[in-house]
């Protein structure tokens, strides 16, 4: 139950990374041989604004322990203002999570550019640590088949 103590808990994290910035940042982290936890499963999207909130919720209700959304820094969006929309959507989903009783911290948004390989690795370490501290997604306690 106490996941903080549960050293064996390896969270499953879904990462939606924007093609132009964060995905390239992840790539750089890899090429640079930077170490970060293997908990994140990366899905490349053309823009963080292409992450329909329903994908986030599909992941979380399907049992993912955390969802990470990475986009370009504000002002750098390849499509001019996509990430501003992303920010609003993430804010909405966080409220929704709170309302239905899931921890809003399970969803994280970061702006990481193509040159920030080290920041990407760090963000993954931090987020994984945060989710480990939160423990497994409580949705999994209730099996609906």
């Amino acid at each position: 139950m106490d996941a903080v103590q549960d050293r064996t808990f390896e969270p499953k994290i879904v990462g939606f990374l924007c093609n132009w910035c964060t995905y390239a940042g992840a790539d750089l982290a890899g090429v640079s041989r930077l170490q970060y936890p293997a908990n994140v499963r990366v899905i490349r999207v053309m823009c963080s604004a292409a992450v329909d909130p329903v994908f986030v919720m599909k992941a979380l209700l399907g049992g993912a322990d955390g969802v990470f959304v990475g986009g370009c820094h504000l002002g750098d969006c390849h499509y001019t203002r996509g990430n501003y929309f992303t920010r609003r959507r993430v804010a909405m989903v966080k409220k929704l999570l709170e309302v239905i009783g899931l921890e809003p911290e399970r969803l994280e948004l970061e702006w990481i550019s193509a040159s920030e390989g080290a920041r990407f690795a760090e963000a993954m370490r931090d987020f994984t640590q945060k989710i480990k501290a939160l423990g497994p997604n409580p949705v999994k306690e209730r099996k609906v088949s």
């Binding site: 909130p53 329903v54 919720m57 599909k58 209700l61 399907g62 989903v93 929704l96 239905i100 609906v144």
Partner: peptide
């Protein structure tokens, strides 16, 4: 195929998906 068919009750996403669309 976002919400799986052939299941009763439907997955929670059936409710949350609509909530996402009109909650605001």
């Amino acid at each position: 195929q976002i919400v799986k068919n052939e299941a009763l009750p439907p997955e929670a996403l059936f409710h949350v998906g609509r909530l996402l669309h009109v909650g605001d």
